[in-house]
Simulated assay, not measured.
Amino acid sequence: MIRMAIELAAPVKINLTLHVTGRRPDGYHLLDSLVVFASLGDRLWVEPAEEMALQLSGPFSRGVPADGRNLVWRAAELAGQVLRIRLEKNLPHGAGIGGGSADAAAILRAFDAPQRAIELGADVPVCLSSRPQRMQGIGDRLSRAETVPALPLVLANPGVSLPTPAVFKALSEPENNDMGELPAWPDRDGFLDWLGAQRNDLERPARGLAPVIGDVLAALSGAGAGLARMSGSGASCFGLFPSEAAAEAAADRISRAHPGWWVRSAVTIPGADL
């Protein structure tokens, strides 16, 4: 039990791959995804209170519910906590990069209630850890991916929020092959070669709903990304670059060309300490 205010981090989540491998009779889709995290993200401050309260701030706080509809609020209830929470929304929501799932996971992690994570959504369990993981099933089967290297990248969102259910509804083929056995990549080049042969099965339906995603991918490729792909159910996309300096320069170039977009450079957290 905490007795004073504590600060929590909710790192951004990036789906490097997202294979949709089936659909259960209850309608839930089965996934196979390689997920990584980077240091940028939302932040939370929590302290014990007499009654639950949620205060929102940050550039993406507008439109986010400050009551029991918010995953943070629900996570606190699942953890058996009554808290005063201040949530700083630095990530666009409905963007395929964690957002609310990472916020909820931060609460569950702080109060030792990880076993309740799947009750809040498929992305919440994977967000309990900031290390690369393979996420399978409906998000409930997780395994560490130790040999995933640190990756300099640029994240870009065109200011479009895509509801995940709408993207899955637009998916025409839910039965696709999985990633197979993950190899022990000998080096970064080997990992990138493997990654280039993978895919995001939600990219095509998402682009049908939001064609601007194609513009984002083109901008990342035009700025020098060796690989550009959508993350999660969109509309955020990532581009991989050979160095931090190259990623920072690309982010600056894209930001100047598209001032209405959210664009950030970052380096992902590797699978093991080097």
Rank of each mutant, 00 (worst) to 15 (best):
Ile2Pro: 03
Ala5Phe: 13
Ile6Arg: 07
Pro11Ile: 06
Asn15Gly: 10
Leu18Gln: 10
Val20Cys: 15
Arg23Cys: 14
Tyr28Asp: 03
Tyr28Glu: 06
Asp32Val: 07
Leu34His: 01
Leu34Gly: 08
Arg43Pro: 00
Pro48Ser: 09
Glu51Ser: 14
Gln55Met: 10
Leu56Phe: 07
Gly58Val: 00
Ala75Arg: 00
Ala76Phe: 08
Leu87Tyr: 01
Glu88His: 05
Gly96Gln: 11
Ser101Arg: 01
Ser101Cys: 06
Ala102Arg: 04
Ala106Leu: 00
Ile107Asn: 01
Phe111Ser: 02
Leu120Val: 09
Ala122Ser: 15
Val126Asp: 04
Pro132Ser: 09
Met135Ser: 10
Gly137Tyr: 14
Asp140Glu: 15
Glu146Cys: 04
Leu153Trp: 02
Leu153Asn: 03
Ala156Met: 05
Pro158Met: 01
Gly159Asp: 11
Val160Ile: 13
Val160Cys: 03
Leu162Ala: 13
Thr164Lys: 04
Ala166Asn: 10
Gly180Lys: 07
Arg188Thr: 08
Phe191Glu: 02
Leu195His: 04
Gly196Ile: 01
Pro205Lys: 09
Ala206Asn: 00
Gly208Tyr: 07
Ala210Tyr: 11
Pro211Gln: 07
Gly214Tyr: 06
Ala218Arg: 12
Ala219Ile: 04
Ala219His: 05
Leu220Gln: 08
Ser221Arg: 02
Ser233Gly: 10
Gly234His: 11
Phe241Thr: 00
Ala246Asp: 11
Ala247Lys: 08
Ala250Asn: 03
Ile254Arg: 04
Gly260Thr: 01
Gly260Cys: 06
Trp261Arg: 00
